[in-house]
Amino acid sequence: MRIRILWPAGHTTATLRRTPTSEALWAALPITSSANTWGEEVYFGTPVAASVEEDAAQVVEPGTVAFWTEGDSLALPYGPTPVSRGGECRLASPCNLLGALDGDPAVLRTVRPGDVIRVERA
């Protein structure tokens, strides 16, 4: 499953693996939301609610597509967050792992708080 993520200054694509949460997200697409940033992470609300999956993780690679169950949000880290230790990508809490961005995650640096974000099937 491939998705496209668009915002006023850019866009990227991601490949999702098949998980209960990614399938629920896929079924809800397209969605539009408002961007938030937290350190070097972009996150935004979705209409999807999910439980924490078995392989949920808090420390992930840059460009991971994660789902923050506590906020029903997609989380897209591209570098350190306020809770990171060193240069790691540490999410606020363990998140479901949905997949990864296809290109350089640094493109997310152009997302500004309040930007309209659209996620659609690619």
Score class of each variant (00 low, 15 high):
residue 18 R to C: 09
residue 19 T to M: 01
residue 19 T to G: 02
residue 20 P to Y: 01
residue 20 P to S: 00
residue 21 T to F: 07
residue 23 E to S: 08
residue 25 L to V: 10
residue 25 L to C: 04
residue 26 W to C: 04
residue 27 A to Q: 15
residue 28 A to C: 09
residue 29 L to S: 01
residue 30 P to H: 12
residue 30 P to A: 14
residue 33 S to V: 09
residue 36 N to L: 15
residue 36 N to D: 11
residue 37 T to S: 10
residue 37 T to Y: 01
residue 37 T to M: 02
residue 38 W to M: 08
residue 39 G to W: 05
residue 40 E to R: 12
residue 42 V to Q: 08
residue 42 V to M: 10
residue 42 V to D: 08
residue 43 Y to H: 10
residue 44 F to N: 04
residue 46 T to K: 06
residue 46 T to R: 04
residue 46 T to W: 03
residue 47 P to E: 04
residue 47 P to V: 03
residue 48 V to E: 13
residue 48 V to Y: 04
residue 49 A to I: 05
residue 50 A to T: 10
residue 50 A to L: 05
residue 50 A to C: 01
residue 52 V to C: 06
residue 53 E to I: 05
residue 53 E to T: 06
residue 54 E to P: 06
residue 54 E to R: 14
residue 55 D to A: 07
residue 55 D to V: 05
residue 55 D to G: 04
residue 55 D to W: 13
residue 56 A to I: 06
residue 57 A to M: 12
residue 58 Q to A: 05
residue 59 V to Q: 12
residue 60 V to I: 11
residue 60 V to E: 01
residue 61 E to C: 09
residue 64 T to A: 05
residue 64 T to F: 00
residue 64 T to L: 00
residue 66 A to V: 04
residue 66 A to Y: 02
residue 68 W to N: 10
residue 70 E to P: 09
residue 70 E to N: 08
residue 73 S to E: 14
residue 73 S to N: 12
residue 75 A to D: 08
residue 76 L to M: 07
residue 76 L to T: 05
residue 77 P to I: 02
residue 77 P to N: 11
residue 77 P to H: 09
residue 78 Y to I: 12
residue 78 Y to W: 15
residue 78 Y to E: 08
residue 78 Y to N: 06
residue 78 Y to A: 01
residue 80 P to N: 05
residue 81 T to I: 11
residue 83 V to R: 14
residue 85 R to M: 13
residue 86 G to E: 12
residue 87 G to S: 13
residue 87 G to K: 12
residue 88 E to I: 10
residue 88 E to M: 12
residue 88 E to C: 08
residue 90 R to W: 11
residue 90 R to I: 13
residue 91 L to Q: 08
residue 91 L to R: 09
residue 91 L to F: 14
residue 92 A to G: 14
residue 92 A to Q: 13
residue 92 A to T: 14
residue 93 S to H: 15
residue 95 C to T: 04
residue 95 C to R: 10
residue 95 C to A: 15
residue 98 L to C: 14
residue 99 G to D: 00
residue 99 G to L: 00
residue 99 G to M: 00
residue 100 A to W: 03
residue 101 L to Q: 04
residue 101 L to G: 03
residue 103 G to M: 06
residue 105 P to K: 06
residue 105 P to R: 02
residue 108 L to V: 07
residue 108 L to A: 01
residue 108 L to E: 08
residue 109 R to N: 02
residue 111 V to W: 08
residue 112 R to G: 00
residue 113 P to L: 05
residue 113 P to C: 02
residue 114 G to N: 12
residue 115 D to K: 09
residue 118 R to F: 02
residue 119 V to T: 10
residue 119 V to W: 05
residue 120 E to L: 14
residue 120 E to Q: 12
residue 121 R to I: 15
residue 121 R to F: 02
residue 122 A to W: 09
residue 122 A to Q: 03
residue 122 A to N: 06
